[in-house]
Design a protein around this nucleic acid. Structure first.
Length: 478
DNA sequence: TGAAATGTTGGGGCG
DNA sequence: ACGCCCCAACATTTC
């Protein structure tokens, strides 16, 4: 008797419910990962996400080998057929996995589960990705929440999620391991080596995830509320890619935060800390995607489907490349391109700029982030973009239009972040760093800048763009 | 997890 | 002493 543990977005050995359950049978285990990007429909992983996955799989394999078993990798067109193939190859009787909640994937998985049962296998799925199952949270009328605060209040009124289970000491392997593809055969890394720079910023894998969390708790948890909006500081946890791939689970984050806070005398306040709040937004995103499966492509507020978006590949490209002429926007877009990640405050600023200053559809922003983020996550990305566009649940009303200059002055007052990512204007004095177009010719000259050549003029004038956005909104009926 | 426009208040300068 | 204006600071409304 052998148990197959099908790894997906749970690339860890601690707090892994499916793995824990498999170990309890006391029999050999075959750990398997199937790469089948075509089954993710249009949301197949982007290049940055694949880069992360490559390194994470290598790390998981190393971790497993330390326990005595190798990760079996498969590149497949059809996950169901591949599972059956591996199962028959090595005498599997049970197939266990942790659930994913993206609508297309969970529909596919239900079909797979039925097919496996029909074929005589025991197929069981577990929760290791969320603190609370989406179907366990409903408001008093039995409907899903559409506003964050009551949603999170309801979650916090429930008993704590279970404590994480420890990683196993040893895993029994099968006598003859199933055939495995080499990691390189999955072709996850980009053909050009543009992503090599990512290694300077990131170390994928469960061990790094824990290091990251502990460092965050010691260095930044205390002043998180005020410092998290300052992109020049390293004040956020940067756990998002690890959480997406399940290299750390939300239960681990929850209990590590609780322990840290309690050791520091915050016996009750930690549950209402802003850091846990952010974990709550992650839950809320999954909750919404579960109940509103069309939202990755379509606005939740349906009247926004008729919004008069522009179509302009020129301004879209300028935004993507970080040459809009607004330093804070350009800094964010370049941080994204160079590191596969962008600070959350700057995601809001760049998002608002695309949707409200350029009047380009939020879906185009969501698609670009999907392709370039190492933490690309369907639930979080969808929530974020619908929030920015004002067409989602608990969203910023459309008329809340960010002024990129005001935001930059408020959250990057010394221009440290902008200078880091937009070096060609780094010589400008602080008073002009966020609005180079207001600098006198002499100032520009001594900073070595020729507007329109070494750095662009603003591609839109914000005050005018703002009025245009409001006029576009006025065409919508409620 | 906005920003701009508009309204209100109160202190101080001044005749 | 008083009314008037100005304007900063803050509050409220509007987009």
């Amino acid at each position: 008797m052998t148990t197959l543990v099908w790894f997906r977005q749970d690339l860890r050995l601690r707090d892994n419910a499916a793995l824990t359950a498999a170990l309890q049978f006391g029999e050999p285990i075959v750990p398997l990962y199937i790469f089948a990007p075509d089954e993710e429909s249009i949301w197949r992983p982007g290049a940055a996400s694949r880069w992360w996955l490559h390194h994470s799989l290598r790390q998981l394999d190393l971790d497993l080998q330390n326990l005595g078993v190798a990760l079996c990798l498969r590149n497949a067109q059809n996950t169901q057929a591949e599972l059956l193939r591996v199962a028959r190859e090595c005498g599997i009787t049970r197939i266990l996995w942790n659930r994913r909640y993206e609508p297309a994937i969970s529909a596919r998985d239900q079909v797979i589960k039925a097919a496996l049962s029909d074929a005589g296998f025991t197929a069981i799925s577990y929760n290791s990705a969320l603190l609370f199952e989406p179907w366990s949270i409903k408001n008093k009328t039995g409907k899903p929440y559409q506003v964050f605060s009551p949603f999170w209040r309801q979650c916090l009124s429930l008993p704590d999620p279970p404590e994480p289970t420890p990683a196993p000491q040893r895993i029994q392997s099968v006598a003859t391991a199933p055939h495995s593809h080499e990691l390189d055969e999955l072709k996850l890394l980009p053909r050009l080596d543009w992503a090599d720079g990512f290694l300077a910023h990131w170390t994928p894998g469960a061990a790094s995830a824990h290091q990251c969390l502990q460092q965050f708790l010691t260095d930044s948890f205390e002043h998180y509320q005020s410092n998290r909006d300052r992109p020049a500081l390293r004040a956020t946890s940067r756990l998002s890619p690890y959480l997406h791939f399940g290299e750390i689970g939300p239960r681990e984050v929850w209990h590590a935060t609780r322990k840290f806070a309690q050791q520091n005398g915050q016996h009750t306040t930690w549950r209402r800390s802003h850091f846990l709040f952010e974990l709550g937004w992650r839950e809320f995103a999954h909750h919404l995607l579960f109940y509103f499966p069309d939202t990755p492509a379509h606005p939740l507020r349906t009247n926004y489907a008729r919004f008069p978006w522009k179509s302009d590949s020129g301004t879209l490209k300028a935004w993507q490349r970080g040459v809009t002429g607004y330093p804070i926007v350009d800094a964010g877009m370049r941080e994204l391109w160079h590191t596969g990640w962008m600070h959350n405050r700057v995601r809001m600023i760049t998002g608002s700029f695309l949707v409200k200053d350029l009047l380009l559809p939020w879906q185009q922003g969501a698609q670009w982030f999907w392709d370039t983020l190492v933490d690309a996550d369907l639930a979080s990305n969808t929530l974020g973009w619908q929030w920015v566009a004002g067409c989602g649940a608990d969203a910023a009303p459309y008329f809340r239009i960010f002024n990129p200059t005001t935001q930059a002055l408020k959250f990057d007052p010394q221009g440290v972040y902008v200078r880091r990512w937009v070096p060609e204007i780094a010589q400008l004095p602080d008073s002009f760093i966020h609005q180079p177009w207001t600098a006198t010719p002499e100032v520009l000259k001594s900073a070595g800048i020729t507007l329109g050549k070494t750095y662009p003029f603003p591609i839109v004038q914000h005050d005018i763009a703002r009025l245009e956005a409001l006029a576009a909104l006025a065409t919508l009926q409620p």
